[in-house]
């Protein structure tokens, strides 16, 4: 494709990214660096602040449309702290799956692919995209949560009982390395599309059109990185290497969840997440 076509594709994916993802990297950066003019997030660092912070989780400052779309997680008063945190993270994850799905459908050519292949691409790609999306929300001390209204400290997450305390640490480690690439939101949009359009996912029937779509997005990504980050010629290669780390990270995460399901009898897994993780790795 001509470079003008590739730039148009980049613009289109960037617009879709901003339409579907409420907490962008630039917004997260502003919140984390305290540049939000007194509107700083509520910090959850212990059980007391977790209880107080539930108010912020339930009262999201989102546009009306977003509020209508969301269904609040059911309250379970006498629930154990760890299970309560896990349930809230799961609930937000299920919402994020919907956001990623809408973004995925906006990738030019995606909805013309075989329907079962679309499902496989989404099933395998969605947690990788969500894990990448988490990186800009994190710094070495903690992570933003609930659309940037909450900051949950890394120490608090580490203080949860086993195995819950082990779940977020690998994501913090990935984020620290990923954030060094200093991608911007438009780079992230293209990278998400590249992840989704992976032609090597198990069970795909018609690989060729998927690879063709991915090739075009890869060209758009390469062109964009050269244009926006001319001082970092290795960026494209470095970014593609992250895809291998992501697969490993997600495979470990899914194994962890399967183990949790067996060990924690009181733990309920969200039906959408259950569907995605069933037979995944």
């Amino acid at each position: 494709p001509e470079s003008a076509d590739l730039r148009a594709l980049s613009r289109q994916l960037c617009l879709s990214y901003h339409r579907h993802f409420p907490l962008t990297k630039s917004k997260a950066k502003a919140i984390l660096s305290g540049k939000t003019h007194g509107n700083s997030p509520f910090v959850i660092h212990d059980m007391k602040s977790l209880t107080a912070g539930q108010y912020f989780i339930n009262c999201r400052q989102l546009p009306v449309l977003e509020r209508q779309r969301s269904v609040l997680p059911p309250e379970e008063p006498a629930e154990e702290l760890e299970l309560s945190v896990f349930r809230r993270i799961q609930f937000r994850s299920a919402e994020a799956v919907q956001e990623v799905t809408e973004f995925t459908k906006s990738i030019p050519g995606f909805t013309e692919l075989d329907m079962n292949d679309q499902v496989i691409l989404l099933k395998y790609g969605v947690i990788e995209v969500m894990t990448t999306m988490l990186a800009p929300l994190m710094n070495k001390d903690g992570t933003l949560f609930a659309y940037g209204q909450i900051f949950m400290t890394r120490e608090f997450l580490k203080s949860l009982r086993k195995p819950f305390c082990e779940m977020m640490e690998p994501k913090f480690e990935f984020a620290a390395k990923f954030n060094l690439l200093e991608l911007d939101d438009s780079d992230m949009a293209l990278f998400f599309a590249v992840i989704i359009l992976s032609g090597d996912r198990p069970g795909l029937v018609n690989v060729k059109p998927i690879e063709d779509l991915q090739e075009t997005v890869l060209q758009a990504l390469e062109l964009q990185l050269k244009t926006i980050h001319p001082d970092c010629p290795q960026l494209f290669a470095k970014l593609l290497q992250k895809m291998t780390d992501l697969r490993q990270l997600v495979a470990n995460h899914v194994r962890h969840i399967h183990l949790l399901k067996k060990q924690e009898l009181q733990m309920c897994l969200h039906p959408l997440l259950q569907e995605i993780m069933r037979d995944l790795y």
């Binding site: 799905t101 679309q118 499902v119 969200h270 569907e275």
Partner: peptide, 20 residues
């Protein structure tokens, strides 16, 4: 298809609310 009915529904429906 039965194994992935929510994903199918998410992919086929437009941006209308999805009951989970």
């Amino acid at each position: 298809k039965e194994k992935h009915k929510i994903l199918h529904r998410l992919l086929q429906n437009s941006t209308s609310p999805v009951e989970l």
